[in-house]
Design a protein around this nucleic acid. Structure first.
Lengths: 139, 139
DNA sequence: TCAATAGTTTAGAATGGTTATAATGTAAAA
DNA sequence: TTTTACATTATAACCATTCTAAACTATTGA
């Protein structure tokens, strides 16, 4: 039984079958006015809070990766013990507070555009990511 | 029995006991004119090639982390399945070729300095890292 | 020089995020 | 419908990393 929500079409357009699990995941990820950062664990928790029907961990991983491939979510390059994702897929950078393990959006206007004055033969630039690590200021 | 190499003093100065394992790791890491990138696995392999005496994986992890804390090596913020380190601790950024899983230094001169025009209350900036992901150019 | 002690190494086990597997289920096409 | 190809699921496997606790060793002070 398919819930014919707004996400059915979005999923279908990108070659993904609109199953009820994927629609549920869409709802949790995109059914909000704010974009947000998440780890898989946090997402699973959020899903289980909003539904009684449990979605398996494997499905969450598979779906998030599918969404990443389709560009619906972005992975944030931090070496942590787990992967961080972002539902805001527009080009922007991040603060990372290592003590709180907290990611904060860096407004595009607050970073001068980065210019890379060199290139690698045979390669083209796919993305430029800036991570600004912060720590408590005990001055 | 302590090998009184050039590293003994370096280790001692930073509060680390100059054990033969740490001196061996120093030799592999720093006994070259070129700096380089490595994963723990690659380092273990390099060590085992240059000595008959096996050093345990735990010791390599512990020592690399101690060196990181002391600033002898830097961790590079890439979300890969394993951590990358850099023996070049001067401030510089990186290309990352995801297909080859290859890190390439980005010359400081080739990147305009990044200016962050905002701050987080109570926090100070610890580092600013740029990762330029590249892919094959099949144009 | 030697014993005490404090830090270190080690093998192997444990951890934990992530991925693979293979059986069952379900959307889409005919 | 019936078929078929794709999805979901629970569970096992994987693998980088961390933990543990016993054996070891550099250092200190007598």
């Amino acid at each position: 039984m398919i819930n014919n929500s707004q996400y059915t079409e979005k999923l279908r357009n990108s070659g993904l079958r609109p199953t009820k699990q994927r629609i549920k995941i869409c709802e949790v990820l995109f059914n909000t006015d704010k974009t947000f950062h998440f780890t898989i664990n946090e997402l699973v928790e959020k899903i289980s809070k909003s539904t009684n029907h449990k979605i398996s961990l494997a499905t969450v991983y598979n779906t998030v990766h599918a969404f990443k491939k389709k560009g619906y979510v972005k992975e944030i390059p931090i070496n942590s013990d787990q992967s961080y994702f972002d539902t805001n897929t527009s080009h922007h950078h991040h603060f990372y507070d290592e003590s709180q393990k907290d990611l904060i959006d860096l407004d595009e206007a607050d970073v001068e555009p980065v210019k890379i004055n060199t290139k690698i033969p045979g390669k083209k630039i796919k993305s430029v990511e800036i991570i600004v690590k912060v720590e408590d200021d005990n001055t």
